[in-house]
Design a protein around this nucleic acid. Structure first.
Lengths: 247, 247
DNA sequence: GGCACCGTTCGGCGCGGCCCGAACCGTGCC
DNA sequence: GGCACGGTTCGGGCCGCGCCGAACGGTGCC
């Protein structure tokens, strides 16, 4: 018998993520969108009954929240904190050593490496570029912990992103999030999420398949100007894989 | 079959914490010290052989590192990131609903609620008080993410804590860490750890049983002066449970 | 109303885990 | 050298969990 808290609570919670199917669900839901139970079941390759059981447990455990609409059961991650937790755990987990087998997969991998959402903010090479540019431009400062500068508040306002409403949330304004392709931080937190959403609203970016994000031509120029960068720097690696190939 | 990464890596990693015994090990190791295999086995109430097996897996999974000394096997958490991960998970896990049964347990609980280490920094009521005072005094600033101010750098230097060496580490200088008794943040990160260690060096605090921390009388006065606070604010709730009772 | 579809519930099966005790090895102490 | 002690290895038992298929209920469409 131990004096303080034993590990049952923690173990029970961790067990929710200790199953490949449930973990796969959470990774899929990292795109920030709501999925139906059937979609998740198909994506994971399990029977609908199995998926239903797993979802019930994930919801009961507080990792997911559900929303019933007609005959559909939509689920999504409960809050950004859960997304961060899943990302943190996934970052420490060893990669299953599964190099891309097919051309399609390789192309999809390249698209994801270039730009993708990480829950609700921007990740990949573009995300890291943005992060670095924001530091250079004095929007962010990391002389003592990552922080948004007063300069940054006005810069955001110029983009149509008022900061005040973001302060009301419990979520930290800005936060480092380690990029698993670049191995360097990109911007998370309330500001990271707001920027990602604003880019979509402005048409600077569009959603690709899965978590992939595409930068539109006009978006590239506009973003380059806002960051005082050369537009060529923001271009994707190869020009072919930015559009849907054929299927 | 899914296109991107499946959940096996994440699940395997989470499984390390999905066992009550292993989870208990990690919680015990949150005190930041190295424990022997036998100590952990006794604390968890399992056979030595069982503990040995668990430790091997935790080390292989990168959560723990071990150090052999003679016939002892010392283990500790691999790095502060692991400690943060365990804390984050534990904070989300539901409490096992086990109210303190005995007077001893209640007293120990009160001591922990007052002041304890959270891996390597200060937590509990005292930790939260310190955090608030540092904000008031302008050592910390959270107008845009938590950050250490220039003012704070000199304040730390006055305490004999040079900041420059801390910048060399990959660890963030300052970080919020949610306190599970106070439900409010206290100070983590490299500065949080350095402060906690400095207080011990100065004799302002001493280690109690387990993760408990005691504030010495002289420490109370010195800390109150450094923070420009009333010393009475820093006093523990009741005077009796600060020392070893009798047994 | 009839049908297709999404999701849930219920048994039952099989695997993998967690745990222990016993035997063994190495270290340190007397 | 002998003994005590910490830790590890091995074999075996047991329980829980994840999976499925089949049957059922509810919803929406025609």
């Amino acid at each position: 018998m131990t004096t303080g808290a034993d590990g049952r609570g923690l173990a029970g919670f961790a067990a929710l993520l200790a199953d490949p199917t449930r973990a796969g669900f959470c990774l899929a839901l990292l795109d920030g969108r709501a999925w139906t139970a059937g979609e998740l079941a198909r994506a994971a390759g399990v029977a609908a009954s199995t998926a239903s059981d797993h979802l019930t447990r994930l919801v009961a455990g507080g990792l997911l929240v559900e929303e019933r609409q007609g005959r559909h059961r939509y689920v999504r991650l409960a809050d950004p904190g859960v997304a961060q937790l899943v990302e943190d755990l996934a970052a420490r987990a060893p990669a299953p050593a599964t190099p891309p087998r097919t051309l399609r997969a390789a192309s999809a991998g390249a698209a994801l490496a270039y730009a993708r959402t990480c829950y609700d903010h921007l990740a990949g090479r573009l995300g890291v570029l943005l992060y670095d540019a924001l530091l250079d431009r004095g929007v962010l400062d990391r002389s003592g912990g990552l922080a948004l500068t007063g300069n940054g508040v006005t810069w955001l306002a110029g983009l149509g992103v008022p900061v005040e409403p973001l302060r009301a949330t419990r979520r930290p304004l800005v936060r480092d999030c380690l990029d698993w392709t670049e191995r360097r931080p990109h911007l998370a937190g309330a500001v990271g999420a707001a920027l990602c959403g604003r880019f979509l609203d402005l048409g600077w970016t569009t959603r690709g398949t899965g978590r992939a994000v595409r930068l539109t031509p006009s978006g590239r120029d506009a973003l380059a100007e806002a960051l005082a960068l050369d537009p060529a720097l923001l271009a994707p690696p190869a020009s072919r894989d930015s559009g849907p190939a054929r299927a």
